[in-house]
Simulated scan of single mutants.
Amino acid sequence: MALFGRRSSPTSDTQAPATATVDPELAALSGTYVLDPAHTEIGFSVRHAMVTNVRGHFGEHEGTLVIDGADPANSTALIEVSMASVDTGAPDRDGHLRTGDFFDVENFPTMTFRSTHAEERGGDAYRVVGDLTIKGVTRPLTIDLEFNGSATDPFGNQRIGFEGTAELLRSDWGLTYNAALETGGVLVGDKVKLVFDISAIRQAPTA
């Protein structure tokens, strides 16, 4: 199913406009969805001491997906994450991440992703590009997603699901804290891998 497909456009003035074909199953998904925090995870991993990875996630987040089934390229996403909710399983490390060395949550409590466009990659694979803001710095981020389908849960909620990944260099967002190792290298890697597992619930249309 093409969720974020783009309509083709004419290549010359003499070519007849392309006729868009709307997938009825896709059109039925049109609407506004909100992330279900109990079934959505936004996680990350980063190299530690050059030899292993530290993994964690953010426990508090919210977001809205607007699906346009008639013109899927117009679908949008907005996700906001509470940086204070970071959890790596080590309270001392989490406390350090909240300080000015890293997230500075007192002055920059929220990380925000706002999509700008999306493209179909074949099958259920998509690429979503948007603006990621961390610590007051906004830069583009590309997320590769897989659409996991839609379903109605036992409570009558219509859900859609995605999973995906992205990579970034934390230094691009001003997160440059580090410590040198005696054996060479640094304590914290620059590359961060983001992992998304998203479940979103369709909202009833407003009157």
Rank of each mutant, 00 (worst) to 15 (best):
G59A: 15
P109G: 11
S12V: 05
L175R: 04
E41D: 08
L141R: 04
A90F: 11
A179C: 00
E146Q: 07
R93Q: 07
T138H: 10
E106L: 06
D144H: 00
E182D: 12
G43R: 03
D23A: 05
D124E: 05
Q158A: 12
V51C: 01
V188M: 03
G164H: 01
G123I: 01
V137M: 11
P10H: 13
Q15R: 15
F102E: 03
A16P: 08
M1D: 04
G122T: 02
V22K: 08
G95R: 15
T152L: 08
P10A: 15
E182W: 04
T206N: 12
R93Y: 11
R55Q: 08
T116L: 13
E106Y: 00
D190K: 06
D190N: 13
S171Y: 07
G59Y: 02
T142Q: 07
V105N: 02
T133Y: 12
K135W: 04
G95T: 15
P17D: 14
P72Q: 13
A166P: 00
R6H: 14
M111K: 02
T99Q: 13
S115G: 04
S85H: 11
S82C: 10
L26Y: 03
N157Q: 14
R139E: 10
G123F: 12
A27S: 12
A180F: 02
V46H: 05
V128D: 02
F155I: 01
